[in-house]
């Protein structure tokens, strides 16, 4: 377990920047925090919750798949330097693990792995949650982890790449910090985690009537923010832009809250109401994915609740559902 003091952070990142394309928690001019390029603003490892999803580093909102011109197909190249992405909370890392598996399951989404392959993923934990709350250690879902004990960063490598990166840092973690790290790992599940699990049980037990979804659906304005902010949502749409000389195909984040997502060419839509679409979204995360993958695919990051303008993010829905039917 290595140690990195705050005054050495800049030098640490400057060294990394020689090898990697950095994506770090950044404080933007209006106080919004994102995982972005150091050019975007000051590095801010502590602060308010990061609402944009960290998985966007590998699966951006829109990206070119290829351009076709004169019988030649050109695909985008891998970036000249691989990505180093810091800022995944332990829950974000669970999301990343989930979509890594999804994008490699039975086929390989080469566009995703173009950015993901050879990247280094670094977690953030310790007292660096919103308002200084304690985030438990991530453990093995990343190459290395930075754990804030309130004074300095403990740096824990989990992979060869991580080992190489931390090799130069002093190996002088004070015993009380190591103890804090050990205790933090035993943090009990929070209320949201419990409620999500209970909601999952109720859905899988078919205990939630359609009338509930009609009420929730009435509050959905189809902003699509829940999907676009969710680190485990992987659906995308595809568009072609044609000019006289070429076609450019790109993909962009899509949303199952949109009518067109499931509308058939006939015009019939098996999910033709907000109620059915909202039911499907929650059902997918809490009932279908446990059956397919053995785990709920909501890792309780809270982003959909934070971006939803009408208060029907997954926590809010799960809480209401458990209160009424649980």
């Amino acid at each position: 377990m290595r140690v990195l003091t705050s005054d050495r952070l800049d030098r640490f990142f400057a060294t990394l920047a020689q090898t990697w394309e950095l994506r770090l928690p950044i404080l933007l001019p209006d106080g919004t925090r994102v995982i972005g390029s150091p050019d975007d603003g000051p590095i801010a490892l502590l602060g308010i919750a990061i609402l944009s999803k960290p998985t966007a580093a590998f699966f951006p909102q829109q990206e070119t798949l290829f351009t076709a011109s004169g019988g030649v197909l050109e695909e985008p190249l891998a970036p000249p330097r691989p990505l180093f992405v810091l800022g995944f909370t332990p829950r974000d890392l669970a999301c990343l693990r989930f979509i890594d598996r999804f994008f490699a399951d039975g086929w390989c989404d080469d566009i995703y792995f173009r950015l993901r392959q050879n990247s280094v993923v670094a977690g953030l934990s310790g007292y660096c949650g919103p308002g200084g709350t304690l985030l438990p250690p991530a453990g093995g879902d990343c190459d290395l982890e930075l754990f804030w004990d309130g004074n300095s960063w403990l740096v824990i490598p989990y992979s060869e790449a991580g080992e190489a990166i931390v090799a130069e840092l002093p190996d002088t973690a004070p015993p009380e910090a190591v103890e804090l790290f050990r205790l933090a790992a035993m943090t009990p599940p929070d209320e949201n985690e419990i409620v999500i699990k209970r909601a999952s049980e109720l859905l899988r037990g078919d205990r939630v009537p359609d009338s509930f979804w009609a009420e929730i659906g009435d509050r959905c304005i189809a902003c699509t923010g829940c999907n676009l902010a969710c680190p485990t949502c992987t659906c995308f749409g595809v568009q072609d832009w044609r000019t006289a000389t070429q076609v450019e195909r790109s993909r962009m984040w899509d949303s199952c809250q949109l009518d067109g997502f499931m509308r058939e060419a006939s015009g019939h839509n098996p999910l033709g109401s907000e109620a059915l679409r909202t039911r499907r979204r929650i059902h997918h995360k809490l009932a279908a994915d446990p059956e397919r993958w053995g785990e709920i695919s909501c890792f309780v990051c809270g982003r959909c609740d934070a971006v939803c303008p009408t208060g029907i993010g997954i926590f809010a829905v799960a809480r209401e559902l458990v209160a009424r039917f649980g």
Binding site: S52, Q61, G225, P309
Partner: peptide, 16 residues
């Protein structure tokens, strides 16, 4: 390549 909401804006408050 995309849009990220402002978390602090008094009207949009992280949503769009």
């Amino acid at each position: 390549v995309g849009v990220e909401p402002s978390t602090t804006h008094p009207v949009s408050r992280g949503g769009l």
